[in-house]
């Protein structure tokens, strides 16, 4: 790009410097990178997982929103999508997988079961995954349609956009 008027120079772009330079805030840059490449950890536990799979497939194509890289290793994932009924027997396993995900991480509770136990008011089902791990987005429905999951993902992206990522870097106290 060559400036039409050589006497006017943009603050954000200087053709004399080799390569392209964009001036922005660190937060904005970090958030922009994070939100558009969310790698989900598919925690498919029951019927909702089928809708999660549909969302990932060609018809709904979650890759349009940068979240198609489903990782089956929690160490490579950013967002855990809890899709299905969390039984007490599974609950601590879900927690363990969550604990293995590196920060920053987010959680989407997909469907009535993951949000609140759903129709299973019973001895065997955890009454919402938020009793064990922090949830950022709840999606209603039994199961939610893929559009709803995508809407939830977009909500999460908007949330990430507002984060103070630089300030919020976890300060881990150094042990003496």
């Amino acid at each position: 790009m060559v400036d039409a008027n050589p006497n006017v120079s943009h603050t954000s772009y200087d053709s004399k410097i080799e390569g392209n330079i964009i001036i922005t805030r660190v937060d904005a840059a970090i958030n922009w990178m994070r939100k558009n490449s969310l790698w989900p950890m598919p925690m498919g536990l029951a019927c909702c997982a089928i809708e999660l799979m549909a969302t990932a497939s060609s018809r709904f194509d979650i890759s349009r929103f940068g979240a198609e890289v489903m990782r089956f290793s929690p160490r490579q994932a950013d967002v855990m999508i809890v899709a299905g009924t969390v039984t007490y027997k599974m609950a601590l396993a879900v927690k363990r997988v969550w604990d293995q995900m590196p920060e920053p991480k987010w959680c989407i509770a997909m469907g009535a079961c993951a949000s609140s136990g759903g129709m299973y008011r019973s001895y065997a089902v955890l009454q919402g995954i938020d009793r064990l791990i922090p949830v950022d987005v709840y999606i209603s429905g039994c199961p939610p349609r893929p559009e709803a999951l995508i809407e939830g993902l977009l909500k999460l992206q908007r949330m990430i956009d507002k984060e103070q990522s630089f300030m919020a870097q976890k300060r881990v106290p150094v042990e003496a």
Binding site: Y88, L92, S122
Partner: peptide, 18 residues
Amino acid sequence: LAGKESNMPEVAFSGVAP
């Protein structure tokens, strides 16, 4: 039907459903 509380550390726990 609501279940009872129990706790096995590191294995599983259960609670009472509302």
